[in-house]
Amino acid sequence: MERYRVNHRVATASHPQTNGHVEVSNREIERILEKAYENNKLYKEKVKRWHDRRLVHKSFVPGQQVLLFNSCLRFFPEKLKSRWSGPFIVKTVFSHGAVEIFDKHPDQAFKINGQRLKHYYIDTANCEAVTAHYAISGLL
Rank of each mutant, 00 (worst) to 15 (best):
N26F: 12
E28P: 02
I29N: 15
I29E: 15
E30C: 13
R31W: 03
I32E: 14
I32M: 08
L33Y: 06
E34M: 14
E34L: 11
E34A: 11
K35G: 11
K35I: 06
A36T: 06
A36V: 12
E38I: 02
N39M: 13
N40M: 10
N40K: 07
K41R: 14
L42V: 00
Y43V: 02
K44S: 01
E45T: 00
K46E: 00
V47R: 09
K48M: 01
R49H: 15
H51R: 14
D52I: 01
R53Q: 15
V56T: 13
H57I: 09
F60Y: 09
P62H: 02
G63P: 10
Q65I: 00
Q65T: 04
L67N: 04
L67Q: 03
F69V: 06
F69H: 14
N70D: 14
N70L: 03
N70V: 04
L73H: 12
R74I: 05
R74M: 11
E78K: 09
K79Y: 06
K81F: 02
R83Q: 13
G86M: 01
P87E: 08
F88S: 02
I89S: 05
I89M: 10
V90W: 03
K91E: 05
T92C: 04
V93T: 09
F94W: 07
G97I: 09
A98I: 07
V99T: 04
V99G: 03
V99E: 03
E100W: 03
I101F: 02
F102L: 02
H105M: 07
P106R: 01
A109V: 07
A109F: 07
F110L: 06
I112P: 00
G114M: 04
Q115F: 10
K118A: 09
K118Q: 15
Y120K: 05
Y121S: 13
D123R: 11
T124G: 10
T124Y: 12
N126C: 11
C127L: 14
